[in-house]
Structures are given as C-alpha cells and as structure tokens.
Nucleic acid binder design. Structure first.
Length: 302
DNA sequence: AAGACGAAAGTGGTTGA
DNA sequence: TCAACAACTTTCGTCTT
C-alpha cells in the first residue's frame, strides 16, 4: 500500500474523513486532498506488454464475498456460445443448474455463516460510510474470528459489529460504539463485550482512540473551515503532552477543542451545537473546555 | 430570550479484591 | 461477585449578552 505523507509537516499519521472525501493530517490538521483516491492495486496498463502481463491477473481477491471473489458463475445471458437462442427445455434446465450451483457454493455451515455475516458487514459498512479498503479489512478479521471459533454462542451480527468497531479503531476512523450499535441494531453493551473478547483471543493491539480523528468529522458537520481544524489539532497535540486526554472520553475532548477553535477563529458555535454533533452534553464540553483553557493558558474571548 | 456557567445528584461501566 | 471509583449525564439555579 502506498504510504502518503503530509506535505506540510511530513507526518504519515493521516486521518480519513470518508463522509466528506478528505484526507487530513492528524498532527497539523492540513487537509491533503479533496477526493481520496483508490489505494488499491492499479490495474491499468499503458502498452501492449503491460496488457499481456496484467490481463491474466483477474480482479483483486475480495474478502467480502464468501468465496473470496473467485467464482464460477453460470450467467443469465440465455444464449449458447454462438449466440443462438436456447430452447425452453434447456432454459429450464439451465435455471435449475444455476440454482443448485449457487446452493452448492454455500453448502457448508461455515460458509453459510460467512454469507450471512458478510452481507451484514457490507450493509453496516455502507451505512457508516466506510471505504472498501476498511470493509475488506473487516471481512478478513471476521474470517480470522471464525477460524478461531470465536462467535460461538454469539449472534453473528454482534461479532460483525465488533469486528467493524475494531477495524475502525485500528485504522483511526472515527466511529463510536454508539453509531455502530445504532446501525447494527445490537446493544452497545453486547458489541463491547464481543469486541473485548476478540481483542483478547486474537491478542490484538488496538490503539486508544485518538480525539484528533474526530476533528474533521465534527468540523464538517458544523461547516467549519480548515483553519478551525488545524487549530483544533494543535490544541489537542498540546493537550496530549499535558496528559489532559487520557482517561477522558475522546469525543468530549475533541468537541471542546473544536468549540474553542471555532471561537478563536471567529466562527463561533454554541456549546449545544457542538455537543449535538459530538453526542456529548454541554456540561462535558464545559468541563473539558475549562481544563484546556486552564492548562494551555488559552485566551478565549466570549 | 438565549446562551454560558457550575453545583449537586444520578447513571452505567471499569477495576481490583 | 461485589464494592469503590471516575467519567459522564441530568437537572436546575444564576449570571451574561
């Protein structure tokens, strides 16, 4: 995979905001591109040699389809290979073949489980606006869970939700347990339990949620400028050095930083507006805001 | 009238015995 | 499994713009 760097500060710690198609530097807040390009393999060919060398590659292996994308399908183009029409009798036969071919391909119970899980996974990812890359990562992790026989005595859906949550955390994509619980239709408590379980069993090292990754999301929702984003990131960097971040809810910290930055940049939002998009209360914003103001000696004029 | 502020009491989750 | 604990929320009264 191509590792991109921030042109401003050189950091590789980039955060994606898929809802608004932006790539943002987590260290200085610089907005790198309006449209996130496809980071997957490039299948273009520029001359005939390349065409020859690449044409037999086929599509990239997909973890989201039950058979990893390597299917033999009987198509629905009811002609023989010369393009002549097929008789009614043959047509019925073909349709039966299609049916059984399809059934045979999801025959074992594990594969049936996967088929259900991956459908659900695709649905949730789409609702959460997650990229294909993230979706594939989640599908891969789900397969790993199945191999390790996690998920026994657990709803398929809660494992799927937990896997998605895990991948979002590792990829620094700002999605809260609440958001995932809402679209998955599973209780937050249940997802959290499944999440801790797979983290323990697979010995995953999931980093703490960085408040910085929420900044682009909140700013976009509040229609705030890139200036505010950069400022928020700066504030959060300082806050982290002072230890004002650990132990506190990442959304609350991020919300306070955005609230302060908006005021400093003359794009003031009310505490309630910020609180709503961050899904915390005004009181929490006030508490974090007070800490930040005190420790960082910020001069915020009302 | 609306927003900002903070105190006090209540809630749900984590942790350590 | 239970109790202590910290973070967060709810609620409410007061002050500021």
């Amino acid at each position: 995979m191509v590792v991109k760097k921030c042109p401003k500060c050189g950091s590789t710690n980039l955060v994606r905001d898929y809802e608004h198609g932006e790539l943002v530097c987590a260290d200085c807040g610089y907005v790198i591109s309006e449209n996130i390009e496809d980071l997957g393999p490039e299948w273009r060919a520029f001359d005939s040699d390349q065409i020859k060398s690449r044409v037999r590659g086929g599509a990239p292996t997909k973890f989201t389809s039950p058979n990893k994308g390597l299917v033999t399908e009987i198509d629905k183009y009811d002609r023989d290979i010369r393009g002549a029409r097929i008789s009614q009798k043959k047509l019925a036969q073909l349709s039966r073949m299609r049916k059984w071919h399809k059934r045979a391909s999801i025959a074992t119970s594990m594969e049936r489980n996967l088929a259900i899980a991956l459908t659900e996974l695709a649905r949730i990812c789409s609702y959460l606006g997650l990229s294909d890359e993230t979706k594939e990562e989640a599908a891969l992790l789900y397969r790993k869970c199945v191999q390790h026989e996690l998920g026994r005595g657990r709803l398929i859906e809660s494992l799927v939700a937990a896997v998605i949550y895990t991948v979002c955390r590792t990829q620094n994509i700002p999605r809260t347990l609440d958001e995932i619980a809402r679209v998955a239709g599973i209780e937050k408590k249940e997802i959290g339990r499944a999440y801790r379980f797979i983290r323990r069993e697979l010995k995953l090292n999931v980093p703490l949620t960085n408040p910085k990754s929420y900044v682009p999301k909140f700013c976009a929702a509040l229609k705030l400028s890139g200036k505010v984003q950069e400022r928020s990131i700066k504030i959060l960097n300082k806050a982290m050095k002072k230890g004002l971040v650990s132990g506190r809810g990442p959304t609350g910290v991020a919300a306070a930083a955005v609230y302060i930055s908006a005021a400093l940049e003359g794009e003031r939002k009310t505490q309630k507006e910020v609180a709503d998009v961050a899904n915390v209360t005004e009181v929490t914003i006030r508490n974090r805001y007070r800490e930040l103001k005190k420790e960082l000696k910020l001069k915020v004029e009302l």
